[in-house]
């Protein structure tokens, strides 16, 4: 129990340090752009691919499940679009990127930590938290909504294409269904989720990396923990947000 509280305290202190120094923007501007490229821009292909196939598979499987004669085909479009917007386009990229982004951040910071590069930075007068943690968290929070948008557009497009190619439902049916359930709030909800997921992934990865110790093995452990914890907290946050906001 005390270990858990200790962990929480250290995590909060790291965040506090990061926030406290957030005014020193000029110092980490270049780092921030770099992180945004690595977190957002470079992740787009895998995210678009994941979203596309999520939508396509959902369309085909929903069409397979909905065989009752009196349910209009447009229902498939409605189900796919709404599921993507409020859940899948936010959660699946987050789970994918907790590996891709989170693991990279933890490994980077962990290696720096165990090879005492962070201490070196501190001794040179840099605020290491400002320099290393803050840009990564901001990049995550800023780029995850972009990733969410890319994933949802790719997913809806994938669903449309899959429905059309397999003949499960026509393009117009799909659009009618999508439009019939579309609420701007769903998109807002998805964007809020992606903000939270971005924050969870990057902050946990930074925390685990920043406090990594014990050589190469320690870095490996920290990376594993960061990825697993990110996934768990993403799912927990997903549940909490759904319970709070819907």
């Amino acid at each position: 129990m005390s270990k858990l509280l200790n962990e929480l305290g250290r995590y909060c202190r790291l965040l506090y340090e990061a926030l406290r120094s957030s005014t020193e923007f000029s110092k980490y501007r270049k780092n921030l752009i770099n992180e945004m490229i690595k977190t957002g821009y470079d992740s787009l292909p895998i995210v678009i691919l994941a979203g596309f196939f999520t939508g396509a598979v959902m369309t085909i499987q929903t069409a397979y499940q909905l065989v009752a004669a009196f349910i209009p085909a447009s229902t498939i479009g409605a189900i796919v679009t709404q599921s993507l917007l409020i859940e899948l386009a936010a959660v699946i990229p987050a789970l994918v990127l907790s590996g891709r982004v989170g693991a990279r951040i933890t490994t980077e910071l962990g290696t720096m930590s165990v090879s005492e590069q962070i201490d070196a930075l501190e001794s040179m007068g840099f605020n290491s938290v400002t320099f290393l943690v803050m840009p990564r968290i901001i990049a995550g929070v800023l780029m995850f909504p972009v990733i969410y948008i890319a994933a949802s557009v790719a997913g809806i497009g994938g669903g449309l294409l899959a429905g059309w190619v397999t003949g499960a439902l026509s393009v117009s049916d799909y659009m009618i269904g999508s439009r019939s359930v579309f609420l701007p709030w769903d998109v807002m909800f998805g964007i809020v989720k992606s903000f939270v997921f971005g924050f969870i992934i990057t902050s946990i990865a930074c925390y685990k990396g920043y406090y990594a110790s014990g050589g190469a093995e320690g870095v490996g452990n920290a990376t594993t923990q960061a990825t697993v914890l990110s996934c768990i907290y993403i799912l927990l946050a997903d549940f909490s947000l759904a319970a709070l906001l819907l």
Partner: peptide, 14 residues
Amino acid sequence: IKVGITIIAAILVA
């Protein structure tokens, strides 16, 4: 420029 383009493109697409 890459970051800017990505964000603007996302907003446009949205």
